[in-house]
Simulated scan of single mutants.
Amino acid sequence: MAQSYKTIIASACFLAMSGCTIIPGGHFEGLQQGEQTENLEKELEKVNIQLIDSALISLHKKNLQNTDLQRKMPKAGLDVSSYEYKLGVGDVLTIGVWDHPELTIPAAVQRSAEFDGFKVQPDGTITFAYAPKVPALGMTVSQVREELVKRLSRVIEDPQIDVKVVSFISQKVYVTGEVKQPGVFPVTETPLTLIDAITQAGGLNERADWKTVTFTRGNDTEVIRLDDFYSKGDISQNRLLQHGDVVHVSRNDQRNVYVLGDVKRAGTVEINRYGLNLAEALSEVGGIDERSADANGIFVLRKRDLERDGVIADVYQLHAKNIASLVLAEQFELGPQDIVYVTSAPLARWNKVISLLLPALTSVDRLQDIDNQ
């Protein structure tokens, strides 16, 4: 019986790749018995088949709970209490000296502070009255103020100086991909975090992958679990951004489930941020075709890493003729790229497609690699 189940998986993979509907009992050209088919059948022993029952559901829930517990372990959050903006070339400052209006831009002058301010020059300095070539590049506002006080103290007794950045030009971060307003955002005296940057970009759009985003700094790229931040409050997922950082939000293309076989409307079903169970996936395609479908032949194909796990795929079977199976289907959570396949009776009609399993799985990998390029 297990070998018959494996032939169903071959059909599922073939349908997923071809996008065609195979009529039960149809004839397939080019499939011949012999050494090649026997070798492929031996490879099918690497398919792991399990029945969807209460024990399996309990095991999956336990594994999920263990994963959640690991993620809920206390983690260091983002500390921005000591953050200070470092000046860069192009930044513009305003400088005011108390009780010395001759050194301050008159308030009545109708020009912007950026126009009359003091720009950090390409050599990294600013020039103020009685204080030429004050180092500013890489300095904080407080450090520039201290240097100005030191310089002006030579000509003014106990100078009280106010320094502010009025135009942040030198440092930028980039938010790209599936956000409502992708663009370039300045780094300012207010700490800019990854979550802040996504918010400034208008938040995620309807096509975004809400699970993860990629964070790139220089040559290093990190996957940030965005959903852990929003749904579990894991503040360790946040990052303090600096000049040149890139936050990229990918499309949700890889978070689909494929529902094929004897259903009313075969196609893809999207996994939303709240998840997707087997019952919901079947409902989305109109349910199984009761005239021809085998209610005991509902399978879920979940690809595995053969080199890492020694298994081509996990295959889960649901006996849907039992009314209790509806509860099991509702509790069985699907994952990205799962294939749900509903067979037609009798199972024996699918034996000729057994050799399609391995080439189909390889082709799925190739297509995903192309999509990721």
Score class of each variant (00 low, 15 high):
136 A>P: 04
19 G>A: 01
67 T>A: 09
23 I>T: 11
196 D>N: 14
287 G>P: 11
53 D>N: 13
204 L>S: 05
63 N>V: 06
216 T>Y: 10
318 L>P: 03
318 L>M: 02
230 Y>E: 06
55 A>R: 06
3 Q>A: 06
317 Q>I: 05
262 D>C: 07
232 K>I: 08
11 S>F: 04
281 A>I: 03
146 E>G: 13
309 D>G: 02
188 T>H: 00
294 D>C: 01
350 W>C: 08
282 L>A: 05
112 S>L: 00
125 T>D: 03
312 I>M: 08
253 D>L: 10
329 A>L: 05
354 I>L: 14
289 D>I: 06
335 G>M: 13
107 A>F: 04
64 L>I: 10
333 E>W: 01
41 E>S: 10
257 V>I: 13
370 I>M: 09
272 N>H: 07
252 N>G: 13
277 N>C: 12
173 V>H: 13
74 P>E: 12
292 S>G: 13
322 N>Y: 09
186 P>K: 14
174 Y>H: 10
116 D>H: 10
92 V>N: 01
243 H>L: 04
276 L>V: 10
127 T>P: 02
256 N>C: 04
82 S>Y: 07
252 N>T: 14
11 S>W: 04
349 R>Y: 13
289 D>H: 08
97 V>P: 00
84 E>N: 15
245 D>F: 12
310 G>M: 05
97 V>N: 02
39 N>K: 14
200 Q>F: 11
353 V>N: 01
355 S>I: 05
336 P>H: 01
258 Y>M: 14
130 Y>W: 14
136 A>I: 10
301 L>H: 08
63 N>A: 14
162 D>C: 06
69 L>F: 01
121 Q>A: 07
108 A>N: 11
191 P>K: 00
235 I>D: 03
51 L>Q: 09
208 A>F: 05
198 I>L: 13
300 V>N: 10
353 V>W: 00
154 R>T: 12
179 V>W: 04
348 A>T: 05
79 D>A: 06
358 L>S: 02
295 A>F: 11
137 L>M: 09
191 P>R: 00
252 N>C: 12
325 S>A: 15
289 D>S: 12
290 E>L: 15
145 R>Y: 09
213 V>H: 10
47 V>K: 03
298 I>N: 07
314 D>K: 01
118 F>R: 14
361 L>K: 02
245 D>T: 15
122 P>K: 10
111 R>I: 06
168 F>E: 03
22 I>R: 03
76 A>I: 08
236 S>D: 05
186 P>T: 07
55 A>V: 07
